[in-house]
């Protein structure tokens, strides 16, 4: 059985140069495109500069520092993190954080869940779950003492977190996790 193939008459729709060569050139469009191209390249350049500076994380502008007013906690972290990319958050403790040869540090649940805490160095003696977070107990001899948290954010977004030595001032901060 013969197949009916749809057809249509040939129309001369391709614009001609000097009315003799069908090129389909459109200089008006091309000038618009070159303008768009310049805008795109400028945008790309700005992205690269912003990235070098750390606007999207892992650069000088991404590094942040916070300190509790009573000097119990001194926190170094990255205010801009990247999804599924490791980083280190360091907590330095003041002398008044050490009690009976131990330091207790409460961290909010967001450090564990959204910011994806993988491990804590040094290994805490005790980790107590509760109060919307985890209370770590570290052995400590004398100041300066510090603990490091290996983070690896599990999802993009904006997350608040908090740290506190029980009985001292709570330190809160915000982290932007890039996709």
């Amino acid at each position: 059985m013969p197949v009916n193939v749809p057809t249509k008459p040939v129309e001369d729709t391709v614009p001609k140069v000097n009315d003799e060569v069908a090129v389909g050139s459109d200089l008006e469009f091309q000038y618009r495109w070159w303008k768009f191209e310049r805008i795109v390249w400028t945008f790309f350049l700005l992205i690269v500069i912003a990235d070098v500076l750390g606007v999207f994380g892992r650069g000088p502008l991404a590094k942040a520092h916070a300190r509790s007013k009573d000097g119990t906690i001194d926190l170094q972290y990255e205010r801009v993190e990247r999804f599924s990319t490791p980083s280190i958050m360091t907590v330095k403790f003041g002398p008044n954080a050490i009690r009976d040869g131990k330091i207790q540090l409460w961290v909010s649940q967001s450090v564990i869940k959204q910011l994806g805490n993988q491990r804590v160095v040094p290994q805490p003696l005790i980790s107590t779950v509760g109060q919307d977070g985890i209370l770590y107990t570290f052995p400590a001899a004398s100041a300066p003492a510090s603990a490091s948290f290996a983070l690896e954010p599990s999802s993009p977004g904006v997350f608040d977190f908090a740290l506190q030595v029980p009985g001292a001032e709570r330190l809160s901060a915000r982290v932007y996790v890039m996709p």
């Binding site: 140069v17 469009f29 495109w33």
Partner: peptide, 20 residues
């Protein structure tokens, strides 16, 4: 046009299209 561009005349009847 936006995705593939358009053909561009480089030389037309003895004249280079220098800007293009």
């Amino acid at each position: 046009e936006w995705l593939d561009g358009v053909p561009l005349v480089l030389l037309e009847q003895g004249k280079w299209q220098t800007d293009v």
